[in-house]
């Protein structure tokens, strides 16, 4: 099979998940696009990267996570402050028609933006990718216990912040 078809297959199979993960992690659409391109360019350049991977999705999430960490490290504190400001407004949920639902999604997006990056990554992978703690641990290069504790901390913060709204629309 030509390599280009392999890249297309990878894109069609995983780009949506990587997009959501990176958008939640970086809170910036332009950065998400750059990182996504960086990942697929890397895969085109080094197709052998995936040869030994048992779980393609987990491997690609690991690539995405490392690329996002590198991006954040490249930036200074000033840029990060600007990023946090932007995090208050970004939404990575699909638009909703119902006003209550719209408010809930916006609040949830903001609550997620308020979590530390490491907790946000675990929460995202657990809730929207449905990965086990072992899979999350492998993807983020942490221990399963660390993944579980980060998830618990992150979820508690979300619950505290969204409790009034959640009770209201329950």
């Amino acid at each position: 099979m030509p390599r280009s078809l392999g890249i297309e297959r990878l894109y069609d199979g995983h780009a949506q998940s990587l997009f959501a993960f990176l958008l939640n992690f970086t809170r910036d659409e332009a950065d998400t696009r750059d990182l996504l391109q960086e990942i697929f360019v890397k895969l085109a350049r080094e197709p052998e990267l995936l040869v030994g991977a048992r779980d393609e999705r987990a491997f690609l999430i690991r690539l995405a996570h490392n690329a996002a960490i590198d991006l954040i490290r490249r930036r200074g504190t000033r840029q990060r402050t600007k990023e946090n400001f932007a995090a208050e407004r970004i939404s990575f949920f699909a638009p909703a028609n119902d006003p209550d639902e719209k408010i809930f999604r916006r609040e949830l997006a903001e609550a997620l933006g308020g979590l530390p990056e490491d907790q946000r990554a675990v929460v995202h992978l657990k809730l929207w990718e449905g990965l086990t703690f072992e899979q999350i641990a492998a993807a983020l290069d942490i221990s399963p216990n660390t993944a579980a504790s980060r998830y618990r901390y992150g979820l508690d913060k979300l619950r505290d912040r969204l409790r009034p709204l959640y009770e209201e629309i329950k």
């Binding site: 697929f40 085109a44 939404s91 990575f92 949920f93 699909a94």
Partner: peptide, 25 residues
């Protein structure tokens, strides 16, 4: 929370990203 659908990736990105990957290859 997990039932909330996530935003879709912009459709135009596919062609751009795959073109960049192809150039690099």
């Amino acid at each position: 929370i997990s039932r909330r659908p996530l935003r879709q990736i912009p459709a135009g990105w596919r062609a751009e990203i795959l073109a960049a990957a192809d150039v690099n290859r």
